[in-house]
């Protein structure tokens, strides 16, 4: 009897601190599988964000660095320029990449750094208690928008992937989701493409992953996946952006 689905070697076999049904666990596993499949475990360097995934380095069994809040792409730029033979990627949430780190994100993309970015968009600040993020949808209730996000007071959801696609330094952007096994397979394909782009020297590649946060959306894990499918993908359409 052959094992057809096994625990990836690049993922430590320990329990994560994530809430039940959190998308981070799926994203971590996908990345570990890709690192195994591409055979780059000895030369990959991850840059972890500040946010729920802040201790991702405890879960991945390859080299990782930590960055100050939002500065993952600045740290990754430095690592890649000093060690161009390494495969460097950042793993950032929406509060990290699209709020406090918008500056670093836009300029790293504009410089066309040969980096891979995995951008986890769950439309909320998870680690700090479910406050509104730039990507929070209109009418979505969070700890700081208790009656729902209003455009007149809080502005509109920030579509950072579409913004970055305008920059000539950006070579690949795709938005994917984790709401079903089929979409998870597509997510893996997109992230693998983003890693392959870096290996081939193509340039800045970003994959935005719509990911569930059942705890701060106030939903059961299954309901959270349905909410992505029925509500979130209408505002953040899936597919290749650039």
């Amino acid at each position: 009897m052959d094992k057809i689905y096994a625990h990836p070697k690049s993922l430590r076999n320990i329990q994560t601190h994530y809430c039940p049904g959190c998308g981070h666990g799926i994203a971590h596993r996908i990345i570990a599988e890709i690192v195994d499949e591409l055979g780059i475990r000895e030369r990959v360097i991850a840059v972890a964000p500040v946010g729920c995934a802040v201790i991702a380095y405890d879960y991945w069994d390859f080299d990782c660095s930590e960055a100050a809040h939002g500065r993952a792409l600045a740290v990754a730029t430095a690592i890649k320029r000093v060690r161009p033979e390494n495969i460097v990627f950042t793993y950032q949430g929406d509060g990290d990449l699209a709020a406090i780190g918008t500056n670093e994100t836009i300029h790293a993309a504009n410089r066309g750094e040969n980096l891979t970015v995995v951008f986890i968009n769950n439309a909320v600040y998870g680690m700090t208690g479910g406050q509104m993020a730039p990507t929070t949808l209109l009418n979505q209730k969070t700890a700081t928008t208790v009656k729902g996000r209003e455009a007149g007071i809080h502005g509109y959801p920030l579509k950072i992937s579409e913004m970055l696609a305008l920059l000539p330094g950006v070579k690949y952007i795709e938005r994917v989701s984790l709401h079903s096994p089929q979409e998870i397979i597509k997510t893996k394909k997109a992230i693998k493409q983003a890693f392959s782009n870096q290996i081939e020297g193509i340039g800045f590649s970003l994959v935005e992953v719509l990911s569930p946060c059942p705890t701060y959306w106030g939903m059961q894990p299954k309901e959270a996946l349905d909410w992505i499918k029925e509500v979130m993908v209408k505002k953040f359409p899936l597919g290749r952006i650039k």
């Binding site: 689905y5 329990q15 666990g25 799926i26 096994p181």
Partner: peptide, 19 residues
């Protein structure tokens, strides 16, 4: 049927599939 959908969606990587 060994489709592995359960393992693909598991956020905690606690499922392995044999065929």
């Amino acid at each position: 049927i060994g489709c592995a959908l359960c393992a693909i969606i598991c956020p905690d990587c606690c499922i392995e599939v044999y065929k």
